[in-house]
Design a protein around this nucleic acid. Structure first.
Length: 569
RNA sequence: CGGGACGUGGCGCAGUUUGGUAGCGCGCAGCGUUCGGGACGCUGAGGUCGCGGGUUCAAGUCCCGCCGUCCCGACCA
């Protein structure tokens, strides 16, 4: 490719709308342009990088026995109502109505399409296992698109779906994908971790997230300092603390605490640490009242609670609920809870005693609350949001929190979709059974942004070889010198002949512009052909990743450049 | 959806406080000089100041409404 012909309008200054490095640099280096909030055009350079990611994914998916198909983006809403995801996704779904008044959506994933597709062929157990995948645009009407490609409303995703006759097969298919995913992210050169995660709106059971480490990442994970535990913060379960030693307990005492509905106010008024207070948070789970107890310095992890009640929806009490069900907002305590209220406590509550908590009347709290004397706990569960410093569930070591970008997520779905969609196969015993399914996503466009986050410096992008739009740039430093141009063209030709993805910067711009653009776009290797070098019979080379510069005699320029490329990350 | 900010040539910004000729840098076009890390001179093109309404002799500037974009939060791959 000749840069004089490439549509690559680089920007000299940082665009006003971009904040994070990947967004800023992908715009400046002419990989993408914004069209609307969370919607982007991919320019030639960006397209090349994205296709490299696609190619890696295709190769690994095909090698793992998956078959590529292409499904529509525009989908009827009906099957989504059948599986319940129409309401579950809610506002996050892009919805539209066609001229006949039919409800349609733009697909955020495609379980509702692929499941009937496979079931429609009335397959036999002999046709299984089956794994179908596609690489297509996905749509989610995010509340707040941000960080460029990292959270767009339109994004390119590889989604795969496995169909098995039994759970054992499904787990096997899952494992095959798990291994394929590791190869994909290894080949992309990403620094990543694999964690147990929360299934979110896809639902189902066992699932893993592949998280690219990044300071700007929106997803938090915990890792043990000793390296034996990794988990998404939403799924992480800290080691429960030691139960409080048995012994004498304080008497229950009612205190006047006017105008202190918050833990913060309470600690100030009474001079006790928040960890000695007991938070009693009320939820509604399908009409039933659920009280959740956690120490005052901790937060309830709502996703954990939701999983406990899945598929029954759980929501926090609203103001009206308090009044209707006879609770005093800001002064709720577990003592004297009605029998039909389910009281759940986090394991950490076991570690405390003589709690300060709400008295269930306005402007009053109690001190010295103890279970089972003063209140009951129906069940102890893991219900707190994990935080830095919690103990590792495996070894008791200290847990740290890291930030990351989720680039892949795989799920064991069991019959979550096949059952409601009545998607069955005929088993060996002649009986129709629902498929055991798994689904597997990779954010293609997000990988490009995640890699940009991991591979950049002040000067611009510095792609790992596998993702670079071009591998080598041949830079003509003196365009007016015929010998320089001739040599540069010769080196460029030879590089192409030897299979390198080379580009020649033959633009009629100052050499400085070419250097700056080369650093900004991030070709792994730069070959500079100029008068100064030619006079010494040499070309200059630069390895973008390290900034390392070297020289090579003219006749060896091509092989030295290729050698340097092979050393690129 | 709650809080905040912004919207002025292609890009980055000033001008809005105190209403009165629409500016700067970069980029773009032409000519000349330059030519190894974003050169220089001269000439030139390019703006319904996000949109609509209102106040005023007069609105980029004041008022009202809307739209768009970004940041924080809630939510989420």
């Amino acid at each position: 490719m000749r840069l004089s012909q490439l549509f690559a309008p680089t920007l000299r200054e940082d665009p006003a709308e971009a904040d994070v490095a990947s967004h800023r640099l992908l715009l400046r280096a002419a990989f993408i342009r914004q069209v609307a909030a969370g919607v982007y055009t991919t320019l030639p350079l960006g397209l090349r990088t994205m296709r490299k990611i696609e190619a890696i994914v295709r190769e690994e998916m095909d090698a793992a026995g998956a078959q590529e198909i292409r499904m529509p983006i525009l989908l009827p809403a009906e099957p989504w109502k059948t599986t319940g995801r129409f309401d579950l996704y809610g506002e996050l779904l892009f919805k539209l109505v066609d001229r006949h008044g039919r409800e349609m959506i733009l697909g955020p994933t495609q379980e509702e399409v692929v499941t009937p597709l496979v079931a429609g062929e009335q397959p036999s157990y002999r046709d299984l296992p089956l794994n179908l995948y596609q690489i297509e645009w996905k749509y989610r009407d995010e509340f707040r698109p941000r960080f460029g490609l990292l959270r767009g409303r339109e994004f390119l995703m590889k989604d795969a779906y496995s169909f098995d006759r039994d759970e054992e097969g499904m787990v096997r298919s899952y494992q095959v994908m798990y291994d394929a995913y590791r190869r994909v992210f290894d080949r992309c050169g990403l620094r990543y971790v694999i964690v147990e995660a929360d299934p979110g709106q896809i639902g189902g059971g066992v699932n893993h997230e592949f998280m690219a480490r990044a300071e700007v990442g929106e997803d938090l994970f915990v890792e043990c300092e000793r390296g034996d535990y990794l988990a998404d913060t939403e799924a992480a379960r800290p080691m429960p603390p030691e139960p409080a030693a048995p012994g004498e307990r304080a008497a229950l005492e009612v205190l006047d605490t006017p105008d202190t509905p918050t833990i913060e106010g309470l600690t100030r008024l009474l001079g006790v640490p928040a960890s000695r207070t007991l938070k009693c948070i009320l939820f509604d789970a399908g009409g039933r009242t659920v009280a959740v107890l956690v120490p005052g310095d901790r937060e309830v992890a709502v996703p954990k609670l939701e999983r406990l009640f899945f598929p029954t929806p759980v929501r926090p009490f609203e103001d009206a609920d308090f009044a209707e069900r006879g609770f005093v907002k800001g002064y709720v305590g577990p003592q004297g809870m009605p029998e039909d209220v389910l009281i759940l406590a986090d394991h950490s509550v076991r570690a405390g005693a003589d709690w300060v908590t709400g008295a269930n009347e306005p402007d009053r709290h109690v001190r010295g609350a103890n279970t089972p004397r003063d209140f009951r706990v129906d069940r102890y569960e893991d219900l707190v949001e994990i935080r830095e410093g919690d103990r590792c569930p495996r070894c008791g070591g200290t847990l740290r929190i890291g930030r990351s970008i989720v680039v892949g997520h795989i799920y064991q779905l069991h019959t979550k979709y096949s059952e409601p969609l009545k998607a069955t196969f005929i088993d060996e015993d002649g009986i129709a059974k629902p498929f055991q399914m798994g689904c597997y996503g990779i954010g293609i466009s997000r990988i490009m942004a995640a890699a940009a986050e991991q591979y950049h410096d002040e000067a611009g992008l510095a792609w790992p070889r596998a993702l670079a739009p071009f591998e080598i740039v041949v830079l003509i430093a003196n365009r007016d010198d015929e010998r320089v141009v001739t040599e540069a063209e010769r080196i460029y030709r030879e590089l192409l002949d030897r299979g390198a993805e080379a580009v020649i910067d033959d633009r009629a711009v100052a050499a400085g512009v070419k250097f700056t653009d080369a650093d900004l776009i991030g070709y792994p290797v730069q070959v500079v052909v100029g008068r100064r070098g030619l006079e010494a019979g040499e070309v200059d080379l630069k390895l973008r990743a390290t900034g390392e510069r070297s020289r090579a005699p003219l006749p060896d320029a091509v092989s030295v450049a290729l050698d340097l490329l092979s050393r690129a990350p």
